[in-house]
Computed example of a mutant assay.
Amino acid sequence: MFSIIQAAGWPIWPLLLCSVVALALIIERLSSLRTSRVLPPRLLDDVMSVSLQQLPAPDMVDRLAENSLLGEVLASGLRAVSAEPQMPEAKLRTVFEFAGRRAVHQMDRYMNTLGTIATAAPLLGLMGTVVGMIEIFGSQGPTGNNPAQLAHGISIALYNTAFGLMIAIPALMFHRYFRGRIEEYVLELEAAADRLMGQLRRFTI
């Protein structure tokens, strides 16, 4: 591996940094976007049953908010109705929408960085290719070719191009995968908030 890095020259170092950052972000997003941390399967039904007759206690609402992103959204509505029992429906809907935007912001965390790496890695590889081509042309002298410099230029060009693609392709695939998951989660969060708001209307005007 070290010999490959040496053969690829200095343009490989930005690509290595991108690969480390991309791997860390992918692992972090795989952990943060698990269903258990965003939309636990039975959570909405439990909240609906608990709040059917009366609003839950504040400590229970606090535990709900710490449970998951869905819990945060549902807890925001319960807290709003508890603080203002005769809250208008439009205001309650605004509370849910604001909580939903916060949840989406948390799910979108680091996604721009991952998308930037997926876009920039091929360009960094292309930069290495250009550097390699410069080395190749530099090996052409009036007295003939410099085989060592020619081989080094070819190594820089090929290794950086390949490594840039090796980083960009998985990063792009995971970026698209995470985007799809987030869109699904957003739809389910909206449906859950709407369902709870329909039940909380009995406590509002």
Rank of each mutant, 00 (worst) to 15 (best):
M1K: 09
F2H: 14
S3C: 03
I4F: 03
I4Q: 03
I4M: 07
I5G: 00
Q6S: 04
A7H: 09
A7E: 05
A8Q: 00
A8R: 00
G9N: 03
G9I: 03
W10A: 06
W13G: 01
S19I: 07
V20H: 08
V21K: 04
L23D: 01
L25A: 08
E28N: 13
R29F: 01
L30A: 02
S31E: 03
S32I: 01
L33F: 02
T35F: 01
R37G: 15
L39V: 12
L39K: 12
P40H: 01
P41V: 09
P41A: 09
R42E: 13
R42I: 03
L44F: 00
L44E: 02
D45Q: 12
D46P: 00
V47D: 02
V47C: 06
M48S: 04
S49Q: 15
V50N: 09
S51H: 12
Q54S: 15
Q54T: 14
L55Y: 07
P56D: 06
P56Q: 07
P56N: 05
A57I: 02
D62W: 11
A65L: 03
A65S: 13
E66I: 04
L69G: 10
L70V: 05
E72F: 10
V73K: 09
V73T: 10
L74D: 09
S76I: 00
G77H: 03
V81Y: 02
V81Q: 02
A83L: 12
P85T: 12
Q86A: 12
Q86F: 08
M87E: 05
M87T: 10
E89F: 09
K91P: 07
R93H: 14
V95Q: 07
F96M: 14
F96P: 03
F98L: 12
A99P: 07
R101K: 13
Q106A: 15
Q106K: 15
M107S: 00
M107L: 08
R109H: 06
Y110H: 06
T113I: 09
T116K: 03
I117P: 14
T119C: 11
P122Y: 13
L123K: 11
L123V: 12
L123T: 08
L124M: 15
M127F: 15
G128E: 06
T129L: 00
V130N: 00
G132C: 10
M133W: 05
I136M: 14
I136Y: 05
F137S: 02
F137L: 06
G138A: 10
P142T: 14
G144K: 09
N145M: 13
N145K: 04
P147D: 04
A148E: 15
L150Y: 11
H152E: 07
G153T: 02
S155Y: 06
L158T: 15
L158P: 01
Y159W: 14
G164N: 11
M166P: 04
M166K: 06
I167C: 07
I169M: 12
M173Y: 10
M173T: 08
M173N: 08
F178V: 02
R181L: 11
R181D: 02
I182V: 15
E184T: 13
E184K: 14
Y185Q: 11
E188Y: 07
A191T: 14
A191D: 14
A192R: 10
R195N: 06
G198P: 01
R201M: 07
R202A: 01
R202P: 02
R202K: 14
F203M: 01
T204E: 02
